[in-house]
Amino acid sequence: YTVGLAATCWAIWLARNRATFEKKQIKTPFEIVFSLCSFLLYWTGLQQGEDAKELRTGAEMIRTSTLQLLKMCGAVKQPIQ
Rank of each mutant, 00 (worst) to 15 (best):
L40W: 04
C37L: 05
I80V: 13
C73T: 02
A6C: 04
L5H: 10
S35N: 11
T2Y: 09
P29C: 09
M61C: 09
E50R: 11
K53A: 15
V76L: 15
F21T: 02
F30H: 14
E54I: 01
T20V: 12
Q25M: 13
Q25P: 02
G45C: 03
W10H: 03
K27L: 12
C9W: 05
I26A: 05
N17Y: 07
T57C: 01
W10L: 14
K24D: 08
Y42W: 06
I12H: 08
C37S: 04
C37E: 11
K53H: 11
I12Y: 02
W13G: 01
C37F: 05
T8M: 11
W10R: 11
K24C: 03
L55R: 10
I26K: 08
R56L: 04
F39Y: 15
Q48G: 05
F39R: 07
M61R: 13
E60M: 07
E54P: 00
I32W: 03
Q47A: 10
K77V: 11
I26H: 07
Y1C: 05
L70G: 12
I26S: 01
C37I: 07
F39M: 06
R16F: 11
E22M: 05
P29T: 04
V76A: 13
F30R: 07
A52Y: 01
P29Y: 12
Q25I: 09
E22Y: 09
Q47N: 04
K27N: 11
A7F: 02
T66N: 01
S65V: 00
T20W: 09
W10E: 12
L67T: 12
A6K: 13
K24T: 09
A75R: 12
E54G: 02
P29N: 15
P29G: 11
K77D: 09
K77T: 13
G4L: 04
P29V: 09
F39Q: 07
A19W: 14
E31C: 08
W10I: 00
M61S: 06
S35K: 14
P29I: 08
Q47R: 11
L69T: 13
V33S: 13
D51Y: 06
Q47G: 04
P79M: 11
Q48K: 15
T2R: 14
P29A: 03
G49N: 05
N17D: 10
G74D: 04
D51P: 00
T44K: 08
Y1H: 11
V76K: 04
W43M: 02
T66I: 02
G4P: 04
Q47Y: 00
Q78K: 07
A15E: 11
V33Q: 04
G74R: 01
T66W: 00
T28E: 12
L41V: 07
A11T: 02
T57L: 12
C73D: 15
K53Y: 12
Q78E: 12
L67W: 09
Y1D: 09
R63Q: 10
D51K: 14
M61D: 05
I12Q: 08
E31H: 14
S65K: 15
A7P: 06
C73A: 14
M61H: 05
W10K: 08
T28I: 03
C37M: 01
K23Y: 12
M61Q: 08
S38A: 10
Q48F: 01
